[in-house]
Amino acid sequence: MSSNQTDIPASAYDMSHIDEADERRTLAIIVDNEPGVLGRVVGLFSARGYNIESLTVAEVDRRRHRSRITVVTNGSPQMLEQIEAQLLRLVPVASVTDMTKSKRGVERELALIKVAGTGDKRVEALRIAEIFRARVIDTTNESFIFELTGASDKIDQFCALMRPLGLNEVSRTGVLSIKRGAEPG
């Protein structure tokens, strides 16, 4: 606001927000489950230049036709405020909750990880999987598929450890989140 600030861009056209500290946020977006609703949400992010790091969606209340979209995004505080406000402009959006800001959010992600190898590497892969409490859901003589649930960075670590042991394919759900405590929402 004050005139001596020089780091604000000269125009709305080059408001890049790069200089401002970006924050990472997980948003829970409750929407009416109707055709095209995901397109509206995703289209808004791309049209306005917001980032999507991860996205999950599924119907969570069949009776009321409500779906829950979980988006992990990042941006400056001003941009994050805009993302929430812009999402709420969409007619089928019932609510937007910033799970990160609420401090009560827990986050989990599920990954399926294929590791191919034989001999010592195969044994080592299985040993690390035990440490991470990953389950083996498919096995051949040369490969395992591990199922792993946890925070995203735990999955990242697991993948990093598996890479030299023959990791060749990863499938992840993206982040899910819910608030701690007895109260809903």
């Binding site: 005139s3 600030q5 020089t6 604000i8 861009p9 000269a10 125009s11 709305a12 056209y13 408001m15």
Partner: peptide, 9 residues
């Protein structure tokens, strides 16, 4: 932007 001109000023 037609109204504000340069926003830092």
């Amino acid at each position: 932007d037609r109204v504000t001109g340069r926003i830092d000023a």
